[in-house]
């Protein structure tokens, strides 16, 4: 199992668009991807599940990745969070 933590910098938090992008990106991996906050837990490949986390700016998202491609998935997801998500919120 691989894991990493990402703090949401987007001032809008886990809104529909970033959640949708994250879910779409996560779907390319076969590993099971779980996203936890200190209160809730969601499926990283599912939009509604991610939105229901109610994660706001500053929330720490703890990613747990388990499966055949966990190493690649972990690295790619961490990069995705830092690059794509932030670039998105820069607008």
């Amino acid at each position: 199992m691989k894991e990493f933590t990402y703090r949401i910098e987007d001032e809008n938090g886990m809104h529909a668009r970033p959640a949708g992008k994250l879910a779409t990106f996560a779907k390319q991996f076969s590993s099971r991807i779980t996203v936890k906050t200190d209160k809730k837990e969601g499926d990283g490949k599912r939009l509604l599940s991610l939105m229901s986390l109610g994660a706001v700016c500053g929330t720490e998202l703890h990613f747990l990745i388990e499966g055949d491609d966990e190493a690649a998935a972990c690295e790619a997801l961490e990069r995705f969070c830092k690059e794509s998500w932030c670039a998105e919120s820069g607008k």
Partner: peptide, 16 residues
């Protein structure tokens, strides 16, 4: 336009 992109994604969502 992205409002409708999100609608399409909600429709595809496995929880849904």
């Amino acid at each position: 336009a992205q409002i409708f992109e999100i609608h399409a994604m909600l429709l595809e969502d496995e929880d849904f």
